[in-house]
Design a protein around this nucleic acid. Structure first.
Lengths: 341, 341
DNA sequence: GCATGGGGTTGGAACGCTGCAACCCGCGTC
DNA sequence: GACGCGGGTTGCAGCGTTCCAACCCCATGC
């Protein structure tokens, strides 16, 4: 390792070297145009020589807030969230913000701690990415202190950018019904968040229009065991059993893909005996081995709109009541769905 | 949205409310035990009342560095990296550090910018996660200014925590040779990093011991087209041939899974006609539909050791020459490999 | 010759906190 | 009664910036 330099050069070090005041150096650094060209040149040379980098902490202390946004996500192991987090980071970086990141894994304690950390570090704003958790608690901590936006999620007390989840659910139901399925099921997490609920509502609604009443299964892949109305059930019952669903809508691709795996294990053929639809359209859904019919979310748009909303709040361009921005969804029909057996 | 409070309370606000000096409040906040119990109680009450949170920026300015570590990763779309990033964040958070995050997607410009941002924000240390890029440039910017550690990667000028890549490559070769394969190939990115090279070396070495000379294919999935020695080739040539490889070692699971997809498209049966081995053992490798034979890396250990090394450098417990810590690998034999046809 | 103006530069206060030296005060000691 | 002691508290300097008012100086105008 190259030996650790002493302490980094400061603005006054540069000023001393050039024989000019700190203010002048500051003006050069910030690109103010009041500095005479020759002076500017000499300052720049000194900056180069001393390898000076402005101390963002000092600057941020003065402004009262950091040029940083916090991104709080649920679980980076879900590829959809990982992809979104990556896009988010890129977008805020493009606009000159640093990204402070935290994954909570749905643990309220970590969530709490993460928000505290970001608050202390005076981030300019907070992005909640597909966040489960106890919304009221988050609201209590963040509410009003800081601009916040929910992306791919929704909360009444803050701006949200999300897709029309309800319509997504409807589309799926209609697709399955159109294929002749009469025994439908919805597969969601044990603790569904608002988005999950919306998807379910749309699904139930459209299914209801065709006189169907889907079964609702709760499951946290890959390790949890499934339950209906809080009562544990066996996969065999659901897939081959007395509740033989032939069309299942999983609340997200992550779960859908694990469901396919369960079906494979039990020898239930997808899509011949069982049709499965996901939600998100993660990268891997396109693989021929997975080939998942799913509802596609416009990732880029969600991220762009989310960051736009957040920055609008940060610089005060947007004020007033929280807004919900909806992006549209589309069904990507692939090979995991087929006419009912 | 709950209405935005004015400016957040400061230490002196608390002090004034209690009728005590700022120093005393500071002592309470930092948990110093010099404060008399009754005073402490009153101060704590005031902190509660004013909803005071210490300004981390001010504290960090004073200490000369932030309680933050930067994580610079290549690409969050690779599940292995996403999983590692998540673990890294959790580990540094556990130790009281905030995580500043940046994904570079291999773009040197973004890399540069990211390092600059972190330098300016006076992070305590930097973790490079499986980073491609121009090592010399990074070294020039970071070298010596800041503690840095490479995780799942290796650089001569900084601490590294990685697996025995060479041995990983060997194991794969022996596995394939043991299955009777004689026509081997290695599939790596256009711009292999050090880890990729090591895997290749081990693979070539062990293959050489059996008198075999694998073909080296460069490919960036999923969009790039493959090449050998810089000359574009067609997948058909490779998989069905005039260069009919029957056993291919992909430098990582991400590529291996896409390779399986290519084989599926071309109607080449895996593993009957073609055996494929990956590297990383990402979560999805276990899915029956993928069922990838792969070299498993001990994620938890890599992260733990990496953070340990970094913190050691940060607080000066570790000094001197850069160290390389190796974790061991193991082959997970699954269904993507079979005896040579 | 004096006021006016404006480009260029500077000094100093402020941001919110920490660390240190100084201080105060009641108590025990000689 | 002077002194030392030590627990508890305070004042102040300083961290590296930015921002603003003030300033200097030279050119211009009448």
């Amino acid at each position: 390792m190259i030996e650790r330099g002493s302490r980094p050069a400061t603005l006054v070090d540069v000023a001393r070297l050039v024989g000019v005041s700190a203010s002048t150096v500051s003006n050069v650094v910030r690109g103010s145009n009041v500095v005479a060209a020759p002076t500017r040149r000499r300052v720049l040379a000194a900056i180069e020589e001393l390898d000076y980098r402005p101390n963002a902490l000092a600057r941020q202390l003065l402004q009262g807030r950091a040029t940083t946004v916090g991104i709080i996500a649920r679980d980076l192991r879900n590829p959809f969230i990982a992809e979104m987090a990556s896009l988010l980071e890129r977008e805020v970086a493009r606009l000159g913000f640093a990204a402070m990141f935290c994954a909570t894994d749905g643990d309220p304690e970590r969530e709490d701690q993460a928000i505290g950390l970001m608050l202390d570090n005076r981030v300019s704003g907070l992005v909640f990415l597909s966040l489960l958790g106890r919304p009221s608690l988050i609201a209590a901590k963040v509410g009003g202190r800081l601009p916040a936006v929910f992306v791919a999620a929704e909360e009444p007390w803050a701006d949200s950018v999300t897709v029309d989840e309800h319509r997504g659910g409807e589309i799926v139901a209609r697709h399955l019904v159109g294929l002749g399925h009469r025994r439908l099921a919805f597969l969601g997490p044990q603790q569904p968040d608002r988005a999950d609920m919306r998807r379910l509502e749309g699904f139930l609604r459209a299914a209801g229009d065709s006189g169907l009443k889907p079964t609702v299964i709760a499951w946290d892949p890959p390790d949890g065991s499934p339950s209906i109305d809080g009562n544990p059930v066996d996969w065999v019952e659901i897939l081959a059993g007395p509740i033989p669903a032939t069309g299942i809508f999983a609340a997200n691709d992550f779960a859908a893909i694990d469901l396919i795996d369960v079906a494979d294990t039990l020898g239930v053929h997808v899509p011949q005996a069982l049709s499965i639809v996901g939600f998100d359209d993660v990268d891997m859904a396109r693989l021929r081995r997975i080939n998942l019919t799913t509802v596609s979310q416009p990732r880029d748009a969600l991220v762009r709109l989310g960051v736009e909303a957040l920055l609008g709040r940060i610089d005060g361009r947007i004020v007033g009541e929280p807004r919900v921005t909806l992006a549209s969804v589309s069904l990507k029909v692939r090979g995991s769905t087929a006419p009912a057996p």
